[in-house]
Design a protein around this nucleic acid. Structure first.
Length: 526
RNA sequence: CGGGGCGUGGCGCAGCUCGGUAGCGCGCCUGCUUUGGGAGCAGGAGGUCCCCGGUUCGAAUCCGGGCGCCCCGACCA
């Protein structure tokens, strides 16, 4: 049976299990201090099942991933969050290079007239443009737009560079910031300014452009699963959800722990829409003048938000080892001065041996915090493994290895001989990475509902916490889509690719008696 | 833009009904004792109580006007 199938019976609607956020290995963040008092509440995070959205905000701030900037709706990405983004960038960049792409950089400001060139494109972006009207103390003759995306400048430049079919394909990417003036913002998930990568290509044939669009979608899927450990459903966007100016938009949709969908990355087949507006033509082998075919594709710092909402728990963030700026933190424990000297020295020895084995590791030898405080702090930040070394361990030649999240029935801490711990850690990091992906996949499958045949049924599922992805038939009528959106607050996430479809294709449209022309997925979304 | 809430040391809040010394928890600084799951004690720093105006002998508190932020709905990676 293909991956992504939930029930053995296609018509069987699966119900979610009662406690969506329960995770093996979660531990109760309520602890007691020495006088037996509970710790002040302000040290704990709001639990996910009390208020998921409050939990998210607190986690991002208190794990020091990001902070609000003085300008409403924009954020500062702090070193821990930026370190995760840097790892993402590096991995993606390598994948782009491996598929033949080169990086370039285009400017922040775009002439207003460029944006206005492609009709659908303007309509899509106009409401969220930030416009520069004054500079150098004078009003500008033509307003400049702070790029919301760069298709228009990039294809205007491509037009300048391309003469012959021999100049194609162009496979380019840029890492940049963009600005879209949003009404409601949330750290990482939707801010006015965000960091992203936008790939832009030009081809001689429609088929080649389509292949490129699909290839990059697959690169994204693979990256999201292998690096973020975040499984995604891939598929095609409906007309109403596609990129403004594209022929077709493909998407990666991830399910967050509250059952809502996160559009994690998109890849667009732009057809000849932009090449026609910007005169991106080439002379073919036969000597005729032809318009090029374009694609564009992007992922953003939103992925950091996706990571948090996929793996985080009530103790904080959980960062998959491959993206963790620090994979292992070593906490020395001691009482007397001579113990401190010995333990800290051992900690640094272990650090340097793990470092040589390719592990990103640091020693937390701050003296003003006791070990417990350090444990909480690094767990909140999501460091995958912690090594504790105290006098008792020193005497026994062992270390304590604690995993950030444990499987059901597994002990949180393992007492291992030093050599064994050192030898095992790279493997432990790998298996933790795998564990996170499998856990996330299971969570998604548990909240994927198939064979849903009526809007009432859809509504009922979405209103039962924590919702999820609902598969149904659809006749393809945009009016039906809009009606469902209004009635259920769910959007049509995508027409899933074959491996995510149900065993038996739905035969009727969810909106009525019309025959279904495509299986689609509904969900409330970020 | 509609509905709701809130602006008081860095953060979270109390005080406002009923005007009169600005307070609590966390955090921060110094010292000593501590350190195997968010340390204890002692001392200390830190405030235009969002802004403007009014009432009053006196305003964080009452009145008027502004501004800002957050949450919930209509747009979006």
């Amino acid at each position: 049976m293909a991956k992504g199938r939930a029930g053995t019976e296609p018509d069987d609607i699966r119900r979610p299990q009662p406690h969506p956020f329960a995770t093996a290995g979660d531990h109760d963040p309520t602890t007691f201090n020495r006088s037996g008092q509970t710790m002040a509440d302000d040290k704990k995070l709001t639990p996910r099942d009390t208020d998921f959205s409050a939990w998210y905000n607190e986690v991002v701030l208190r794990a020091e991933l990001a902070d609000h900037s003085p300008v409403r709706g924009s954020m500062v990405i702090r070193p821990w969050g930026y370190g995760i983004w840097e790892r993402m960038q590096r991995a993606l960049d390598d994948m782009f290079k491996a598929t033949g792409h080169e990086n370039a950089y285009f400017p922040l400001l775009i002439p207003m007239s460029f944006i206005e060139r492609e009709k659908e494109h303007v309509e899509g972006f106009k409401p969220e443009l930030a416009v520069v009207t004054h500079a150098g103390g004078k009003e500008l003759e033509e307003p400049l737009v702070v790029r919301p995306t760069s298709e228009t400048v990039i294809y205007s430049m491509f037009a300048k560079w391309v003469q012959s079919y021999r100049d194609l394909p162009i496979l380019m990417n840029q890492w940049a910031n963009v600005m879209r003036w949003e009404m409601r913002t949330r750290l990482f998930l939707r801010t006015s300014e965000f960091l992203w990568q936008e790939g832009h290509t030009a081809h001689t044939t429609e088929r080649e452009a389509e292949e490129e669009t699909r290839r990059m979608l697959e690169v994204y899927r693979q990256f999201m699963e292998e690096w973020i450990a975040m499984p995604v459903v891939t598929g095609l966007k409906s007309e109403s959800e596609k990129f403004a100016g594209a022929l077709r938009t493909y998407t990666c949709e991830a399910m967050m722990q509250d059952g809502k969908a996160l559009q994690a990355g998109t890849s667009h087949n732009l057809g000849q829409n932009f090449s026609k507006q910007f005169d991106l033509t080439y002379q073919s082998e036969a000597g005729t003048e032809e318009f090029a075919w374009n694609t564009s594709w992007g992922v953003s710092t939103r992925l950091v938000g996706g990571l948090v909402m996929t793996h985080g728990d009530d103790a904080g963030v959980v960062v998959p080892p491959r993206l963790a700026p620090t994979q292992v933190v070593i906490v020395p424990i001691f009482r007397k001065e001579e113990e401190r000297v010995a333990v800290v020295e051992k900690a640094h020895q272990i650090r340097s041996r793990l470092h040589d084995a390719g592990v990103r590791v640091r020693v937390d030898d701050r003296e003003h915090l006791n070990p417990g405080a350090k444990f909480w702090e690094w767990e909140r930040k999501g460091v995958p493994f912690r090594i504790e070394i105290g006098p008792r361990d020193l005497a026994k030649g062992q270390v304590v290895v604690a995993r950030r999240v444990t499987a059901e029935g597994e002990d949180r801490k393992a007492f291992l001989p030093e050599e064994e711990a050192l030898a095992n850690l790279p493997g432990l990091l790998d298996s933790f990475q795998d564990f996170l992906l499998e856990r996330a996949r299971a969570a998604r499958e548990a909240r994927t509902f198939r064979g849903v045949e009526s809007i009432d049924e859809l509504k009922e599922i979405l209103e039962t916490t924590p919702g999820g992805f609902v598969h149904s038939g659809w006749c393809g009528d945009p009016e039906v889509e809009e009606r469902i959106q209004t009635e259920t607050k769910a959007t049509l996430r995508c027409i899933p690719d074959p491996e995510f479809r149900s065993e038996t294709p739905p035969d009727r449209c969810i909106g009525g008696d019309a025959p279904s022309s495509a299986e689609v997925i509904w969900a409330r979304a970020y």
